[in-house]
């Protein structure tokens, strides 16, 4: 009985840890995306402040290449849309993973209690 429980506990613990790792990965992705979004938003406001004939350059490797302001604005807007979509995806993932983690945590606690009870019982009988 108690060996069986111990096995269950062990496997539950493993899946709990896996989910935890996945969750941490998702959270760090989220943070990265959040940072990128902020940077792009800041660039967007800066581009919007610029006069219509303002000169914009894009750095490609070691050189600066002149770009049209309109093009730069479009590019940044597109990037922001993309990042927002990715953010929504990651948020969904984080939500599911959190629920999974909670479920695993609950059954872990349940097994732990059962194991303790079994041990107490065994101690009484011996």
């Amino acid at each position: 009985m108690s060996e069986d429980l111990q096995k269950k506990l062990q496997s539950e613990l493993t899946s709990f840890k896996t989910v935890q790792k996945e969750l941490q990965k998702a959270i760090s992705t989220r943070q990265q995306l959040d940072g990128q979004l902020n940077e792009n938003e800041i660039v967007k406001t800066e581009l919007n402040i610029l006069p219509a004939d303002g000169k914009v350059f894009k750095s490609v490797g070691p050189v600066l290449i002149k770009t049209e302001l309109v093009e730069a604005k479009e590019n940044v807007s597109k990037r922001i849309d993309y990042i927002n979509k990715e953010l929504n995806k990651v948020d969904g993932l984080i939500g599911t993973l959190e629920k999974k983690q909670d479920a695993h945590r609950e059954s872990l606690q349940k097994y732990q209690q059962q194991l303790q009870q079994a041990q107490v019982k065994a101690a009484l009988h011996s």
Partner: peptide, 13 residues
Amino acid sequence: VIIDIGTRYYVEK
């Protein structure tokens, strides 16, 4: 001067 405004964009001001 040319300023780095982030995400590899530079603007002249």
